[in-house]
Amino acid sequence: MLGWLKKKPPLYSAVQAFNQVSIPAANTPARDCHYLALDLELTGLHAKQDHIVSIGWVPIRNQQICLSEARHYLFRPPTSVGQSAIYHGVHDKDLKNASELADVLLQLLQDYAGYVFVAHHCRLDRAFLQIAYQRLFGKAPNMQFMDTLNIEWHRMQKQGTVMKKDALRLPQSLARHKLPVSAQHHALEDAYGCALLFLSQLKKSHPHITLGDLLVQSS
């Protein structure tokens, strides 16, 4: 009767297992590390009261985005998607095939331990993930985040470029890097856009830049 408990490791231990795999040392060349670009769509901006509507991710290994592992999951929020639907194009009717948040968060821990997580303006994504893990797993994993927005800001500061309003937003940044810009407010499209931007930033950095240095730029 309690067989399902044996099949899945207790969620808490999944976080512990994740935390046991550390990310590469700070002096590792940044180009040699593994990354997971991800993006969340949310019902609002407050991690404590709003919910995750969807998550999308693509891994980067050897400076290549592996589309075979591109994923996109929709979750059913406790309250109706309501007003915020306009921002991410997700409607209640799309949620029929929704996934369980806990399953997806578990998959993330199991498949991408040792990865550096990349997001554009990662603060919100990180906060929502931390709280979701805390609620569902009893413990938040130590996820190392890299912020493409901050790297971009750092890059432009260094070039002495005068930044216009919105210049650091993902579509504007992609356009500046002459990268294709796709539909916004779709978690996978934005994760992919973020991955493209990161590849370009990585290439435009010093060829031997270390993970540690890049993380400094990203903070």
Partner: peptide, 11 residues
């Protein structure tokens, strides 16, 4: 088909 692609940025 696209799911088999690897995407690479070249300078």
């Amino acid at each position: 088909l696209a799911a088999h692609f690897n995407v690479y940025y070249c300078q």
